[in-house]
Design a protein around this nucleic acid. Structure first.
Lengths: 229, 229
DNA sequence: CTATTATTAGAGTATATACTCTAGTGAGTC
DNA sequence: GACTCACTAGAGTATATACTCTAATAATAG
């Protein structure tokens, strides 16, 4: 693998683990056992590394949020969108943590991120529209649909911060992808009142799959597993 | 005013304006025209300053989110809660910006913040309960009420970040309290499907008051004002 | 007035951070 | 074998940052 790509990969990994603020260019170089000079041969500065990582993130999400125009949407599609978005959020989880600072330090990033958000909001809104067309949710007036899409976005982008700051995460226990995906439960909560009777059961069952387990329950389950094994 | 209090006040002001990450203890001392030594006489370190500011924030929100047990809740109460929460968010707006880093750097703060969040969630849930008792919204099963309260919290705490990162804020234009309070529109959006017919109109009217204005519209209004003046 | 305590100034320090500069190396080309 | 050129090492630098230390001054108590 090329040094340039290794830098991007290591940076992402370190940023995700310890936060962009806590990782310096020297850390990255050290982690790869290359010299700072080498790193700066490939990237003008730290911002450039972050910007390229963002471009990957953007590409990923844009790819997954490509809503088909030619066919109706299914519940499986919805699951796929939700899973994909949270997967993306997970893979680039450092990004939202220091978002404001990052955007303040890089104008390109600010501009691109703004457009990215708008595309995401449009995609969410489009999904709502198609869910209504498919008879999964009731149709909504434009204004309500926009506001709801925005709420979905707010819940999605803030769910991880909530887990990391407010949840019963003890010192050692770090966040897992599974916990993150409990955000899907929260998102589906938003849609409950709009579900059509025909689909209500099925969506509620889907939601149930992402219900957060109480830490004690999870522990007991682990206990049971250990006893079994 | 005591030097100690001046330090807290200036820190809050500078943090809010430029972000905690961008403000050093030397900046704070410089801004007050006191020496770093003086600042460190009053506070052991930067974390301590932040912690004390958090305690103020906590006290403020706890005070406003004290839900009366002895009487029914009104729509005016709801408005008051929402306004107060966003006022608090505004006054201590630096806090949520760098939340994760701050909690990582200070165990006390992490612990206290966790409890704080839980109190807030409980208060929101309690408000929903009393809104149902008052016949403003339909009663909900416990599980749904919890999930909805959490969504309200996620929307509230992430609204500012959304405005700062994704909204059409141009370079110079900085966030205003009024824009922030458009978050109330988003929160009330969550409640729409649960409103009782008796209160529906009134809540929708309340919500309308916080509807975001398009930048052009706001500008035109400003234009009109300038022409008048 | 004296002794003590609270407060302050200001120079100073250890470390970190982002980044630069110079001197290469090694693989391929003519 | 000379040359190019992408790539790399590693020492070095300017600045920032959080924080310390000493000495001095104001405030207060006995």
């Amino acid at each position: 693998m090329k040094t340039r790509d290794k830098i991007l990969l290591s940076s992402l990994e370190l940023f995700n683990e310890r936060g962009e603020r806590n990782i310096t260019t020297n850390h990255i170089a050290g982690h790869l056992a290359i010299s700072p000079g080498n790193l700066y041969y490939h990237f003008r500065n730290k911002s450039d590394i972050i910007y390229e990582i963002f471009l990957e993130y953007e590409k990923l999400v844009d790819f997954y949020l490509d809503i088909p125009e030619d066919r109706a949407i299914t519940l499986e599609d919805l699951t796929f969108y939700l899973e994909s978005v949270f997967d993306g959020l997970w893979s680039y989880r450092f990004f939202h943590r220091d978002l404001e600072y990052l955007l303040d330090s890089d104008r390109r990033l600010r501009q691109d991120y703004r457009e990215f958000t708008n595309r995401c909001l449009a995609a969410i809104s489009r999904i709502f529209e198609k869910l209504a067309e498919a008879g999964i949710i009731q149709p909504q007036p434009d204004e309500l649909r926009s506001a709801m899409s925005l709420n979905v976005w707010l819940v999605i982008t803030n769910w991880m911060a909530f887990l990391k700051t407010a949840h019963a995460l003890e010192e050692s226990a770090s966040l897992t992808l599974n916990e993150l995906k409990q955000g899907i439960y929260q998102v589906l909560t938003l849609e409950i009142p709009y579900l059509t009777p025909e689909y209500r059961e099925r969506v509620m069952a889907l939601r149930e799959k992402y219900r957060p387990r109480l830490p004690e329950a999870a522990e007991m389950e682990g206990e049971a597993l250990r006893k079994k094994g």
